[in-house]
Design a protein around this nucleic acid. Sequence first.
DNA 1: TAGGTGATCTTG
DNA 2: AAGATCACCTAT
Length: 197
Amino acid sequence: MTRIPKDFFLRSDVVKISKELICKKLVTEINGIRTSGIITETEAYRAPEDKASHAYNNRKTERTKTFFAEGGVAYVYLCYGIHNLFNIVTNKADIPHAILIRAIKPEEGIDEMLKRRNKSKLTPALSVGPGSLSQALGITRAHNEIDLTGNTIWLEEGIAIKSSDIEACKRVGINYAEEYVHKLWRFKLKNSVWTCK
DNA sequence: TAGGTGATCTTG
DNA sequence: AAGATCACCTAT
């Protein structure tokens, strides 16, 4: 399977890249176990101007410094004390763009994903929602800043789709973001059960 | 529909 | 040093 190269992530239009990520494949190989899924939902975060981003106004702290790395690395942080949220940093160094991966449709290593999630049946609850997908793929904060063209977490060409198969909507959980609340920077695969409500 | 959970950031 | 906040999930 063809891997997505570094150049893909270095481009400047994070909203466009978010849309292009739909139906690409996200793969992890952790402790020798390979798991993967087709990306079905993403959200773009476009700091410095985006008030929803942790890096709004170029805010730079211990946590947000990962945003300022060159594109093609992971930004993973703990949300609500429980959930590891996986993002992909894009654009060149010092431009804090990132894409939150919100849902996948499981492909390989489904048994391992069920085990990690403590589930017995293959349902959307396994890997829909940003916290759930990270747990299913075994992604934790230990993977923050990891290179996404390496051999732990990477992306591959997935399924070819048309632009019209993708639906754009508002991002969730960012009611503090004022005018940026309304940006259509969330992308979903249309008519898929593997997306958030 | 509410509560859990803890890192992170802001305020004093 | 303490309190508020938070890109969510699960079970009633």
